[in-house]
Simulated assay, not measured.
Amino acid sequence: MVIMESGTHDCVAGHSANSIIKFADDTTVVGRITDGDESEYRREIEQLSIWCQHNNLALNTSKNKELIVDFGRSRMGTHSPVYINGLMVERVKSFKFLGVHISEDLSWSENTNSIFKKARQCLYFLRRLRRVGLSRRTLSNFYRCTVESMLTGCIVAWFGNLSALERKRLQKVVNTAQSIIGSDLPSTGLFSLEHRRPRGDLTEVSKITR
């Protein structure tokens, strides 16, 4: 991380309404468009492309995606496409950012479905481990390292906006894991999602204030 930052320290947003988020080999440009003026956002993308050229980096336009979150009266059809090196960037309704599915309407249905499916698959291995006679403590540790880590990834960002039905779907995974382990939540150290989210909030606050 230090090496990456030392080589990209000058790759920063040139406009106050924009942000450039760098993570490993992924770079995300976030622009806030006011009164339909996209000029600063588009210039930011152009400057990023120029920066990459000057630093011998190639932008693969076929892998670039653009997501527009627009709660105004205008919709996606009114926004002109973005071009990089003469090629049009694909506009999508959702994409995966650091493991989280973000949708244009900021709903979390796709993210919830993805988490639910992956977590349910891990329950199969939890059942197999129980059948071979592993202790409840070991089963609990396996749950926390696999299922719970999936259920709580970036939970402070999306859990508060879930519908009641989506919360029940995810909580059902926790309840099923509890049934497989054969112990109540307090004695196995497992947390329901309702209690896990504020716990995550406190963890983030603790990191910031240190």
Rank of each mutant, 00 (worst) to 15 (best):
R210T: 13
F97P: 05
F71K: 03
S39P: 05
S187A: 15
L139K: 01
E166L: 10
V12S: 02
E194I: 04
L134E: 01
W158N: 00
A119Q: 06
R199K: 13
K117Y: 05
V173C: 13
W51T: 04
R210M: 10
R197L: 03
N64S: 13
E166C: 11
L87E: 14
E46N: 07
S183R: 09
S49D: 09
Q171L: 09
P81I: 06
L170A: 01
T176A: 06
R32M: 15
V12R: 13
L98S: 11
E194W: 02
I208G: 13
K117V: 10
K22A: 09
H101G: 10
T28R: 13
S183Y: 15
W51K: 02
E110M: 13
E166V: 13
K22Y: 00
F191A: 08
R131E: 11
E40A: 02
S114E: 09
Q53A: 04
D25I: 03
F142T: 13
S6N: 06
D70P: 03
A177K: 01
G72S: 12
V29E: 06
R167T: 03
T152N: 00
P186V: 08
G7A: 07
I45Q: 00
H54K: 12
F142Y: 07
E66G: 03
S74L: 14
D70E: 14
W51N: 01
I181H: 06
S49M: 08
L165D: 08
M4A: 08
N141W: 05
G7P: 01
R197Q: 12
N60D: 15
E66A: 07
I21M: 14
P198R: 02
F191H: 09
S192R: 07
L193T: 02
D35T: 07
W158C: 00
T209W: 12
G14S: 03
R43N: 15
G189T: 06
F159E: 00
S16W: 13
M1V: 15
R91M: 01
Q121P: 05
M1N: 14
